[in-house]
């Protein structure tokens, strides 16, 4: 299978990015290519990076409830540009009822606090495989 490329980012003004960095390290250990955008990214800068990097996956780390405000904006941009092939994963502090709401908007997976690296890697790998198959991309 072609190497999976993941753009990992914080969204908005919250600078608590240890979680994003720990997950980036996990994904690299699992053989994925990770581009970590860092702090103070807006939906627009994340969108731009995902296009430029031709990312398979966008991973957003949220700690301060901004999943409710900024993630929907990013999804809108991706939808408008018809980027259905990109897997969107949101991780962090996302209490009920938001996982269901974000999934309804088009987020592919929500990864809550305390999730181990095994399930994270498996989830991302299987979502990328599904999207690649749907797009007719050969392994």
């Amino acid at each position: 299978m072609k190497q999976i490329k993941v753009v990992v980012s914080k969204i908005g003004l919250d600078g608590h990015d240890v979680g994003a960095k720990v997950v980036s390290a996990m994904l690299r250990d699992a053989g994925m290519e990770v581009v970590y955008l860092g702090r103070f990214q807006s939906p627009a800068t994340i969108f731009k990076a995902a296009v430029e990097e031709d990312a398979d996956v966008i991973g957003i780390s949220c700690q301060s409830s901004n999943h409710t405000r900024l993630v929907p904006k990013l999804i809108d941009m991706l939808k408008k540009e018809g980027m259905d092939n990109v897997v969107i994963v949101v991780g962090g502090t996302i209490p009920d009822p938001f996982p269901a709401e974000l999934k309804a908007l088009g987020v592919d997976a929500i990864i809550g606090p305390g999730t181990m690296s095994g399930p994270i890697v498996e989830t991302i790998t299987s979502l990328v495989e599904q999207k690649r198959q749907a797009a007719g991309i050969k392994e």
Binding site: G12, L13, G15, F40, S64, S65, N66, R69, K73
Partner: peptide, 22 residues
């Protein structure tokens, strides 16, 4: 909240969604 800690006003384009969120 984060906009204040960053040193921008609540009506800044980066702040309008996050003012008072935390």
């Amino acid at each position: 909240d984060y906009p204040t800690q960053v040193g921008i006003d609540a009506d800044h384009p980066m702040a309008v969604d996050e003012a008072g969120l935390v």
